[in-house]
């Protein structure tokens, strides 16, 4: 793009530069909050802003005290543990049910395909506050409020649409004649699914699972309504911290979460490449 075609006059060129400048500033806007939060988490003062010492790169203005504070606070440790437990089981439930259903949905013979797809994807669209209120009313009847199974079920329902979307996308490149070939060679459908279909769509399944995990890991509204004190999660702990008592421990947790998202992004990218290779795109 650095070489302009001959018919470009000065205005064309200015336009291109202006465009790039505006795109650059939007990217800056997107990255700014993430860039700001990381240095702030090393603040040695209990404030949410850059101190003079930090700006002059005085080493004593930086410290790891807020990271220590996470380790010393049993509530944070409990929250981290709970987030992983709930996220893990919600992911298993959502991925298993979602993958099987996606295979059915991708079949050309699936009846009412459009309506069912729209229904299964709707947890992604309905406002969380409505879901939370409804689940609070309904789960109470089954004594699921304030329990791990209640939260796992709730989060699995939220994760399902992501699994469906990613797995269906992978299946759209899947050659159905392989499936039929498997069947005609005498294998039962389950075996064909396990030995033929699953290896080919595995990247899609795993990335769907990652999406489901992140959905649960990041979710706070349902937790606010459905969790008891034993089930508080990282986002719940952050939410109450932000509402009641702001201190930089939250920034330290936030920084750690940024690194979690970087790892996630890298694995998704690797999965995408692998999937493209498998599908021969």
């Amino acid at each position: 793009m650095s070489r302009f075609p001959d018919y470009f006059n000065i205005w064309h060129k200015t336009g291109v530069y202006a465009l790039r400048l505006s795109a650059g500033s939007v990217l800056f806007f997107l990255m700014l909050p993430i860039l700001v939060i990381i240095p702030l988490s090393f603040n040695s003062q209990p404030y949410f802003t850059f101190t003079e010492g930090m700006l002059s790169f005085d080493a004593s203005a930086y410290s790891l005290r807020w990271y220590n504070a996470i380790l010393e606070n049993p509530n944070w440790i409990l929250a981290i543990r709970n987030s992983f437990i709930i996220g893990f089981f919600a992911t298993i439930v959502a991925t298993t049910l979602g993958t099987v259903a996606a295979v059915g949905l991708a079949s050309p013979d699936m009846p009412f395909k459009r309506v069912i797809t729209a229904l299964l994807l709707s947890p992604m669209i309905v406002p969380l506050i409505i879901i939370a209120a409804g689940m609070f009313f309904f789960y109470t009847r089954f004594n699921l409020v304030g329990t791990f199974p209640g939260l796992i079920i709730a989060h699995a329902a939220l994760g399902v649409p992501f699994v469906i979307v990613t797995v269906t996308a992978t299946l759209s490149g899947f050659d159905r004649s392989l499936y039929n070939a498997g069947l005609s060679l005498g294998a039962n459908p389950l075996r064909v699914f396990k030995d033929v279909v699953l290896p080919l769509i595995r990247p899609g399944v795993i990335s769907g699972g990652l999406f489901a995990f992140v959905t649960s890991f990041d979710e706070v509204v349902l937790v606010l309504f459905l969790a008891g004190p034993d089930q508080r999660t990282i986002p719940r702990q952050m939410f109450s911290g932000l509402r009641e008592q702001i201190n930089p421990t939250i920034l330290a947790v936030a920084t750690l979460l940024v690194f979690v998202s970087i790892c996630l992004l890298v694995s998704l990218e690797l999965l995408r490449r692998r999937s493209e290779r498998l599908r021969g795109v």
Binding site: R81, F84, I85, F88, F89, F148, D230
Partner: peptide, 10 residues
């Protein structure tokens, strides 16, 4: 395995 251990502690 980790999750099962964690749940047993719960």
């Amino acid at each position: 395995g980790a999750a099962v251990l964690a749940l047993m502690a719960a």
